[in-house]
């Protein structure tokens, strides 16, 4: 499974601080540690800082120490544009996080996706908000797929995020999400992605819930996850679930991780 490292997000107070302080060493340390832990992508978010200017700084600072592709995380077209312009190397590897069927997002972000032919995360939300049912989320997915197909976009680069809602609000929110994953994989030639922490909002032992949620998502066809690769237990869950799902030929990755002492019970 594709791992998008979530640490460099300005929603985290300590990260917001190091971005505001322009503490390059601290940012680069977080970047390097996530890569070493197995991140395939590094998510960059500066929404809680001086978004556009700081995105430029963050991209440049991170790329000084790693070649791992970046995931530009913003709702603002201007910030994504600045990020893309700043990225050196193959810009078509950048994962844009995200578009949706909201009119403003489509207008601002879609042209950038098409210009650079980047992979992109598509949220199942439109101007009416996040739908309550799996059926309505599939409908939005269909609209997104149609919109991108009309523009000759390569759908295998589209990562649909069916938006998980807290279990605390409705005890069937997880099963509804699993249903979305299964249906999307069955109906469309696209990929799926999710964050993990919403599911456990306002519950105790959140990491426990997140970990099992991840494993069940993977079993239902999730292709990528936005998570904290520095959390050894969640990475252990990824490695183990990949082994069980037949994604790890001869268990090579699992056994390698075992020998490196990366697996935690």
């Amino acid at each position: 499974m594709l791992i998008i490292g979530e640490k460099l997000n300005s929603a985290i107070p300590s990260v917001r601080q190091i971005i505001n302080d322009k503490d390059a060493a601290a940012v680069q340390d977080l970047a390097r540690r996530q890569v070493r832990a197995g991140a395939d992508y590094l998510d960059l978010n500066t929404a809680h800082c001086n978004e556009v200017a700081d995105m430029e700084w963050l991209v440049r600072t991170v790329q000084e120490v790693t070649d791992v592709p970046l995931c530009i995380d913003s709702t603002v077209g201007e910030a994504i544009k600045k990020g893309l312009e700043t990225v050196k190397g193959d810009k078509s590897k950048v994962l844009i996080n995200s578009i949706s069927m909201e009119k403003k997002r489509l207008e601002e972000v879609l042209p950038l996706v098409l210009e650079y032919q980047c992979p992109v995360i598509g949220l199942t939300v439109d101007d009416n908000g996040i739908p309550k049912t799996a059926k309505d989320r599939i409908k939005i997915t269909e609209h997104l797929v149609e919109t991108l197909t009309r523009k000759n976009y390569d759908l295998s680069n589209l990562y649909i995020d069916p938006l998980v809602l807290p279990l605390a609000v409705n005890h069937t929110n997880a099963t509804m999400f699993f249903q979305c994953l299964t249906d999307i994989k069955r109906l469309f030639n696209v990929k799926t992605v999710s964050g993990l922490s919403n599911i456990s909002f306002n519950m105790p032992k959140r990491k426990l819930i997140n970990r099992y949620f991840l494993a069940i998502c993977m079993a239902n066809g999730m292709d990528a996850a936005i998570l904290d690769p520095l959390d050894r237990k969640i990475m252990t869950a990824v490695t183990t679930a990949d082994l069980l799902l037949g994604n790890d030929r001869f268990g090579k990755n699992f056994l390698k991780a075992y020998r490196k002492d990366l697996l935690e019970d």
Partner: peptide
């Protein structure tokens, strides 16, 4: 004991 059975099989492959 460093390598496991599946790795031996993989080596064969």
């Amino acid at each position: 004991g460093e390598y496991f059975l599946s790795e031996l099989i993989m080596a064969g492959e």
